[in-house]
Every structure is written in structure tokens, then in C-alpha cells.
Design a protein around this nucleic acid. Structure first.
Lengths: 333, 333
DNA sequence: AACGATTGCGGGAACGGTTGCGGAAATAAA
DNA sequence: TTTATTTCCGCAACCGTTCCCGCAATCGTT
């Protein structure tokens, strides 16, 4: 099925060493004519180098694993596209695995990546408490690992993320400056660090501006479109007054907007809406959602830089990169 | 950095054959006690099997390559998620590569997959004329290849796609039954077969219903949101009358809707909008876009079935699977 | 002409597993 | 006890490369 260097060697009456050298473009140990001849016959015979054998021999796979919670949000797919764009010219390929927001899938797919002996792993975790020992063990064995976006506290490992606390703070202040006093928070799950950071920012902004914290304004029913809808419906049906909604992500915000509009509220006049984690989708709906956009390109750049550094210099110290994200004010606030 | 079976063998005073057999769970050739002992020490020493070596020896990588044009559209990411869900339990991993809608990237990434000796490739091509000899050669060498969604005519190779012609036909008839006579067609690029099929359906439906074909109603300015916007703007500015828009994909439809609403048209009263290739995004905008939704789950199932069959029985004849897609009528028509 | 340096190539041991074969020990059958 | 059959394990080849080492032929130098 496949031609090997031995086939070429036999065809030319050479040794496989020479063929290998000619094919890998090594200078000095093989005469130019022989090299040319070998390369030509290889081409003619349809030779394809068996990367498996090369990797086994060189003990390096030139592969980076990327483990993400999902691909539906364009954040991750864009991240992957950017990372590939940078890695490919450097000779690295990537292999993508999904955790589907499930810690068991995450573990299993992490194993899969590690089993295939990738040179490094870029991971965005689905739970900042789970699988921690596994990651420590990995780091201890000195295999390059870099967390991005959803990181884990306390690991001796490089990471890159945006400053969710600060961004949430600014987003909250934006709402407050618009005169909002009863801001509902559609929160994210507790097991994601970003979510906790945002909630903390929510609390802190309120207290900084002398607004009392009302727990009944904080809801955790789900981070998707349906979740946002249910949460707002809950507030309305229980007569809990609010004049703004601060969402964990944009799909929540969209769900919230839909319910509000259907019930006859005006956005942003009656109720303002703002969200973290915005992408182009935020601009599709009406009114377009004010959101904080994650600097996905820069995050990919940094993550790739960190993983490559760890590969080239395995003992370099961990680095924690924080990239500011940008607030885009749109019609909804 | 990594523990090998030889390390385990040395530690236990056994041969690597025995260790290998114990670890691979082979019955009968190794005593239960030895097996248990080996497995325990492997665990203790943190042994991870080197898949590379296994694959090299077994001449099989248990890996399926998936090559898609992009990941931004949720169609492809959903397809991948589904395919992985099915393949994983069967022991197959997947590696995802992007062509970025570019034939050179496609070629290069196809090579990459083939170089890494994947057991089969699932591909959605970005151009139905390009790289054809390469694919033929691949098929001739009897390496499993399955096209999905965007297929190429005339290759002796299994494929799965939805019936774009029929779906476009129904979508057009739907518009016609709604009394539309001047239907603009925001077409896709010529080099994608699906696009040609849809255009043909456009022509045929018109002729079936005795409506004259007007070339000035067919535009090809781009398949994204901006493209849709430009195209509709063009029609309006040149005073070309139309009462419906039939789009190649949903982002185009969204761009078109935005322009129409901004100019004061009512949808669907003044102008109806319908699109192929719809996803959840079609339901986010107002008015929600009537669209044909591709049966992504079924397509993934079939594609996986076909590639596995080709792997298990390399000589089985090519099969062309066509899965009907569903039209969802929404507010825009 | 004699001698070291360079060039071009082949031999063979890795890389980390799997697997067919053969043999010793243990067990079963005669 | 002898013979036949299992059971369990080791030996060594193999997958397709790379790369170190050694050797012969050619080259340049005095």
C-alpha cells in the first residue's frame, strides 16, 4: 500500500541510510547527484514518509493537542483556527479533542492526547476542581501544558486568560453609570473560575457604588439561550423588580432579550442588557447586545508562544499571561 | 520522561513479551497472577503505552482525519462532535484539519492527514474541481476516503450529502405558493457543487411555474453577512424590483434582512426571505429566517458508517448516500 | 610519493511496542 | 512411569525511520 525507503534503496541499489539522508535534505553526507536521483525516484514511486516511524525514532510528534469544552461557541473554533495558523508554518500539526463540558470526557480525552504522545497540550478546562491531580502529574513529568481562558488556580503551569474580574467590573460600572440600580446577574456555573470572578466583580461593583446586594437578583439556571429566558421569566413572575441584566454569556443575554421583548419591555429604556463573552452573534440580534469581547487572536498567539517555549525549554518557569478584553457598547444598554 | 514496557520488565525480571501480553489483556498466554502483578506495577510506575510504536507495528493508527472548509458555521463543528461521539467508543480518534475555503490549504492539509497515516479521511471539499487527481490517486491506493456535504462528481468513492436540488426546489415552491413572482437568488460560488445544484433548482422551479428567468436577479457577491447586504443593496439601488430573496446560506439571509429592515421594508409582507443551510442562528434574528436545515446528525452517522465499512472491507463498492433535509418555515416568509 | 583530511556510503543499533515460534515445566492421560 | 497435552514464558524478528560509527576512495598538502 505504501512505498518505504527500503523499496527505494532496493530499486537503486543503495542503502536505506543513504536514501534517508537524501530524502531528509541532509547536506554533506550524500553526493548531490545521488540525492537528486533518490528524490526523483521517490517522487516517481509515490513515496510518502511514514511520520509514525519518524516520530517514534525522534521521540517527538510535532503535534499539539487542543482540548476544549465545546465547538459551538465561535470562541473556541476561532481560537483553534488561529492556533493552527501559527503552528502549521512551524511544522506543528494540531489535534482537537472535546470535553463536552463533562469532566469524564475531559479526563478521557486528555488521556487520549497524552497517549498519542503529543508534544504539548493546550487546554480550556470545563471544571476548575476536577482532574487536578492528573494535570499536576502531567506537569511533574515535565510535559508541556498550557491552560487558556478557563484556567485552574494553583497549578505550576503557564496559562493565558483575559481579566474577567476587571472586565465584569467595567461592564457593571457601565450599567451603573447608565443609572441602573437593580441589576440582575445571570451567573455561570460555580465550577468555572471565570464565573466566580465575574460574580465577585458583580458584588464589588455594587458595594463600591453603595448599592445593596440582593441575592434574589442572582440566578443560575443555565448558561444557554433557554437558561437566560427561564431566569428572566422567573424574575418577572415573582415580581422581583430589575432594570438591567448582567449575563454570563451572550446566549443567555439573547434568551433574556427575547422574553423581555415579548413581554413588552423596551431595551434598553426599561431594562438594559449586557453580557460577557460576546462574539459576532451579539450583533445579530436586535437590540444588539453590549458585551465584552474576548481577545481570541491574542490569546491564541500567547498560548502558542507559551507551549512552544515549554517545548523548546522544558524547564522555563510558568508564566501567567492576562490579556485585557474589550467592552463594546451596543444598543442594548 | 515516559516509562516503557522494558522498564517494567526489568523491574519485575520478566521479558517484555510477557509484559506486553499482560498489558494488552491477552488471555491464556500469561498466568493470572503475573498479569495482575504487571498491571499493578505498570499503574504504580505511571506507565502509558506508546501508541506510536503500536501503530507502527500494527500498521494501523486508529485515527480518522476530518477535513472541513471552516469551523465557524456550526454545521461543521456539530458534524465533528457527532462523528467523534460515534467513533470514540469504537476506539477511533479523530484529527481535524481546516482548508479555510482555500484549495492550497486543502491540499496541504490533506497531505498532512495522509502523511500521518490516518486510517481514513472524511472530507468536505472547498472546490469541486480542485485536487481531484490527488483524491483519485488516494482512492486508487485503496485508502478509505468519504466525501460529505460538499462532494465531487465522478469519483469512485463513497459520499453522503443532502439533496440540495430537491430542498432548493421545495424552498422555491414555498415562496411561489406565497405568491412571489420576482425571486432574487443570492447564489453561492460556482466551484461548489451544492451551489450549482441550488441554482439549477432555482431555474427549474421558475420554469415549472411559468415564471420568466431574469438573470439580473441572480447575484454572487459573497456568501457571508456582508455579501447578502451588498447584494440586496445593489438590487435596491439599481431599481430592480423583487418580492422575495432566496439565499445560499443563512448569514447571507441575515445580511439581506438587515438592509431591508433598515430601508423600511416589511418582512415578509413586502419581501420574503428564505435560505438554505440554516442552523440555530436562523432563529436568533427577527424575523426568524425560513430555512432548510441540514440533517447533520444523520450525515455524520452515515459518513462514519461508510468510512468504517471501507476500513473493514477495503474493496466494498462506493455508495452514494443522500439524506433528505427538512424545511422549517419561519417568520420571514 | 606519502600522509592526513574530507567525502560518500553502508552496517547496524536504536525508538517501543507486537507476535509467531519454540521450549521448559506443570498437568493430564495412558 | 511414560507419553501427550497444556500452560506460561522468552527469543527474536518486525514495523519504517534516524543516526552514530566505520571504512574506502578521493582530495589537498608538503
Amino acid at each position: 500500500m505504501y512505498v518505504t525507503i527500503i523499496d527505494i534503496a532496493k530499486a537503486l541499489g543503495l542503502s536505506k541510510s543513504t536514501v534517508s539522508r537524501a530524502l531528509s535534505g541532509e547536506k554533506g553526507n550524500v553526493s548531490p547527484e545521488t540525492a537528486r536521483l533518490v528524490i526523483e525516484t521517490a517522487e516517481r514511486m509515490g513515496y510518502k514518509r511514514n511520520e509514525l516511524a519518524v516520530h517514534l525514532r525522534k521521540r517527538k510528534t510535532m503535534t499539539i493537542g487542543i482540548l476544549v469544552p465545546e465547538l459551538v461557541t465561535s470562541f473556541y473554533s476561532t481560537f483553534i483556527a488561529h492556533a493552527q495558523q501559527i503552528l502549521r508554518p512551524k511544522g506543528y500539526r494540531t489535534i482537537v479533542a472535546l470535553s463536552n463540558e463533562d469532566i469524564f470526557w475531559e479526563k478521557s480525552n486528555f488521556d487520549l492526547l497524552s497517549d498519542s504522545r503529543v508534544d504539548g497540550i493546550l487546554i480550556s478546562t470545563c471544571n476548575d476542581k476536577a482532574n487536578v491531580e492528573q494535570y499536576s502529574a502531567f506537569i511533574q513529568r515535565n510535559i508541556p501544558l498550557v491552560f487558556f481562558d478557563r484556567t485552574i488556580k494553583g497549578l505550576d503551569c503557564s496559562s493565558v486568560r483575559s481579566n474577567d474580574y476587571k472586565a465584569a467590573f467595567f461592564l457593571m460600572e457601565h450599567l451603573i453609570y447608565k443609572g441602573r440600580k437593580r441589576i440582575a446577574h445571570l451567573a455561570g456555573p460555580d465550577h468555572i473560575r471565570n464565573s466566580a470572578d465575574r460574580f465577585q466583580a458583580y458584588i464589588d461593583t455594587l458595594s463600591k457604588h453603595g448599592i445593596a446586594y440582593d441575592p434574589s437578583l442572582v440566578l443560575k439556571e443555565g448558561t444557554d439561550r433557554a437558561g437566560g429566558a427561564t431566569e428572566v421569566t422567573f424574575l418577572l413572575e415573582h415580581g422581583i423588580p430589575f432594570d438591567a441584566v448582567f449575563c454570563f454569556n451572550e446566549m443567555q443575554a439573547i434568551g433574556a432579550e427575547e422574553v423581555l421583548l415579548r413581554k413588552g419591555f423596551r431595551i434598553p429604556e426599561d431594562i438594559a442588557v449586557a453580557s460577557m463573552y460576546g462574539t459576532e452573534v451579539s450583533t445579530l440580534v436586535h437590540p444588539a447586545v453590549t458585551s465584552v469581547e474576548k481577545p481570541v487572536a491574542r490569546m491564541a498567539e500567547e498560548a502558542v508562544r507559551l507551549i512552544l517555549r515549554q517545548i523548546d525549554a522544558p524547564l522555563s518557569p510558568a508564566e501567567e499571561v492576562i490579556i485585557p478584553s474589550e467592552m463594546v457598547i451596543r444598543e442594548s444598554s
